[in-house]
């Protein structure tokens, strides 16, 4: 199912959960795994000196230093490397993390990028959640051709990779790519696919119940029209429409169904990122979800 998986890691404990999922997936699907660590970003004026993300020290990112970082990475992931069944390549580079992750993903034609949600270990207040959903994750998810699997918390349901896939849609073009990925994954594994939409109530108290019911019915009809023809010949799915705050409903639904993979689109090109409803939603889901979240915006790597 996956030929090449790219694990983009900060090589700190905050990416341990992502690393576990990436190594497990590579073993399960006999994929080649590329482990990429972006060492640090250069200073203003772009000299060869960089500040190493892990140590906070200023270093000259020459080939010797990069080699040394690669050795360190091998130590960090020694246990996983020991158990790895397929080929694992370790790569370290200096630069802007999102640029380098996308560059390497393209070069390796990765069909899945696995990453953590943020680089900080400390607990953070809810008001800052948007900030800690790292800018890197947001940029990569938005621009990547390949599906991006974001793992921000220990996966409590990941025993089978995967048995219950939850696909949440906002009916956009990008969401259709996400659907293709969810459907393909479900078909190949033969697992359950839950197609889900939440009618966003916004200022709920002002909405009349009849109107809510009408909107739920309308969404249901759209799902039938958009996705049912594509699911021809596959029985193992169900469809659910609820109303409320999208990210809360998606999380509740995933928990109810013991979802072990949530698939969503990040945001679409037609809608500016700050206005895209599902953009903010996906970030909230990523932060709180107990299972990995795949952000899929493009169909390129799904063939």
């Amino acid at each position: 199912m996956f030929k090449t998986i790219l694990l983009a890691t900060t090589a700190t404990p905050s990416c341990d959960d992502a690393a576990k999922v990436a190594f497990d997936l590579a073993n399960k699907y006999k994929a080649r795994l590329v482990v990429l660590h972006v060492v640090g970003r250069p200073s203003r004026g772009y000299s060869p000196y960089i500040v190493d993300y892990r140590t906070g020290q200023e270093v000259d990112a020459d080939p010797d230093y990069i080699e040394w970082v690669k050795e360190e990475l091998k130590n960090t992931y020694a246990k996983q490397l020991e158990k790895a069944e397929g080929s694992v390549e370790i790569e370290a580079r200096a630069g802007m993390p999102c640029t380098e992750i996308l560059r390497v993903a393209r070069r390796e034609t990765a069909d899945l990028i696995v990453m953590g949600a943020h680089a900080r270990d400390e607990e953070t207040a809810a008001s800052r959640f948007r900030d800690i959903v790292g800018r890197t994750m947001r940029k990569v998810a938005k621009q990547s051709r390949a599906p991006v699997l974001v793992v921000s918390r220990p996966c409590t349901t990941c025993f089978w990779y995967f048995s219950n896939i939850v696909f949440a849609t906002d009916f956009s073009k990008a969401a259709h790519s996400a659907f293709l990925f969810a459907q393909k994954t479900a078909r190949e594994i033969g697992c359950m696919l839950h197609v889900f939409h939440c009618v966003d109530l916004g200022a709920a108290e002002k909405t009349d119940q009849k109107e809510i019911e009408a909107r739920v019915a309308e969404a249901r009809a759209r799902i039938d029209a958009l996705y049912l023809p594509e699911l021809a010949g596959y029985e193992n799915y169900d469809i659910e429409v609820r109303e409320g705050t999208p990210y809360v409903e998606i999380l509740k639904f995933a928990r109810e169904k013991s979802g072990d993979l949530i698939v969503m689109a990040h945001h679409t090109k037609e809608v500016p990122p700050e206005e895209a409803e599902i953009g903010g939603t996906v970030e909230q889901v990523v932060l709180r979800s107990a299972c990995p979240v795949a952000s899929v915006n493009r169909p390129d790597r799904l063939e």
Binding site: S43, Y46, S47, P48, Y49, R103, R106
Partner: peptide, 30 residues
């Protein structure tokens, strides 16, 4: 030191950032 290192890159590669020729073309194609 910092600006001198950048000048070294200019001398060695004719560009500011130690970009190799294939990296340059690859970035454009990307």
């Amino acid at each position: 030191q910092y600006i001198q290192d950048t000048a070294h890159s200019h001398s060695a590669t004719m560009n500011q950032m130690w970009v190799k020729e294939d990296e340059w073309i690859d970035s454009l194609q990307w």
